[in-house]
């Protein structure tokens, strides 16, 4: 006897795919954004160098976060990592050395986060929140609470210039990082096992996967990517701002979560994160071009994140049950005597 996959027809397959994939909300948002922007502010598409730059800015940090969230952990410290690495880089006169030290600092921060999560046993939300605050302070200490100017301004200006067409080095780095992470999470064993660690940690451990090492890798990736974003920002602006990063935190979380990376781990993809970053980037540029001030942009992106996090596909069912019990009819509620 042979046992086989149950056949469910094309329609069933599509329906199943739709139920399993988590990128749906991201695609809906992207479609909405594209339609609305195409009608109201089409210049956002013609000014694609600006738009691409914005997508890269949001997307890069979100890519690193994706690696961590896939394992069911969270890295809130990315915002400060970005600020600290930028400040470190700008404080070192030699550009090359500065970049290397800044990136190393990002990896180191990832390691420290992982130590607290893996060996001390602190929930990653709280551990990285503490790091977020402490590193923000560190950025102030190193920078003496002022923006630090890059000593090699020419390099910065050169960095900001487009290479080919609209593609600036920032966009190129983002594309390379996206491809690298996509390959890592789909083709490299260690990356693929992130899904196992996030999906069923006990099973991953039983199958002989080095769970702790994977968690270390994830935090190191997110630290490194955040530092990379800090380095790029510093180069483009020819100065490092110790207060940088707080709005990046919001946008990058929004990109990953709307892109379908499930906070409990095990589900999601960098493609989804890219979709999320694309929709948020286009939206932001369109809003800016239509003269909407940044405060209102924050309201938009904050609302998108709020909606994304409460419509998490895995939680909708739980929410439905909660709503039912929340609005229980009261006549049933009396204590019988």
């Amino acid at each position: 006897m042979k046992l086989g996959t149950e056949q469910s027809g094309l329609l069933g397959r599509v329906r199943n795919l739709a139920a399993r994939r988590t990128e749906g909300r991201g695609l809906i948002l992207l479609a909405l954004v594209i339609i609305v922007v195409a009608i109201l502010e089409p210049t956002a598409f013609t000014a694609y160098s600006v738009t691409l730059g914005r997508v890269a800015l949001i997307g890069l940090v979100a890519l690193g976060l994706t690696a961590v969230i896939l394992m069911g952990e969270l890295d809130l410290s990315v915002a400060s990592t970005l600020a600290v690495s930028g400040v470190i880089m700008a404080s070192i006169p030699d550009l090359g050395l500065g970049i290397v030290v800044a990136l190393a600092a990002g990896i180191l921060i990832g390691i420290v986060n992982a130590v607290f999560v893996v060996y001390v046993g602190i929930n990653s939300f709280i551990a990285t929140l503490g790091m977020l605050f402490a590193l923000r302070g560190l950025a102030f200490v190193i920078s003496d609470e002022k923006p630090v100017r890059l000593s090699n301004i020419d390099a910065g200006i050169a960095f900001g210039a487009p290479l080919i067409g609209p593609v600036t080095p920032r966009v190129l780095i983002f594309i390379v990082a996206f491809i690298a992470l996509q390959v890592f999470l789909t083709r490299v064993r260690a990356g693929r096992e992130f899904y196992a660690v996030g999906g069923n940690r006990q099973a991953a451990f039983d199958a002989g996967i080095p769970v702790r090492r994977r968690i270390f890798t994830g935090f190191m990736i997110s630290g490194f990517v955040a530092a990379l974003a800090g380095v790029i920002n510093t180069l483009e602006r020819t100065a490092a701002d110790p207060t940088a990063g707080s709005s990046v935190l919001l946008a990058s979380f929004a990109a990953a979560i709307i892109g379908g990376v499930v906070l409990t781990g095990g589900r999601g993809s960098v493609v989804g994160t890219l979709i999320g970053a694309l929709s948020l980037g286009i939206l932001q540029v369109a809003l800016t071009l239509s003269g909407v001030q940044t405060d209102i942009q924050d309201i938009f992106i904050g609302s998108i994140l709020l909606i994304a996090v409460i419509t998490d596909p895995t939680q909708l069912r739980a929410a439905a049950a909660s709503v039912r019990s929340f609005f229980q009819r009261r006549e049933k509620a009396q204590i019988p005597t």
Partner: peptide
Amino acid sequence: SLIPEMTVAENIMLGSTPTSYG
């Protein structure tokens, strides 16, 4: 103890995935 997001092949080889240079 399967990982729902992974394919059948990946699940079967979980923990003993054949690799070259990772």
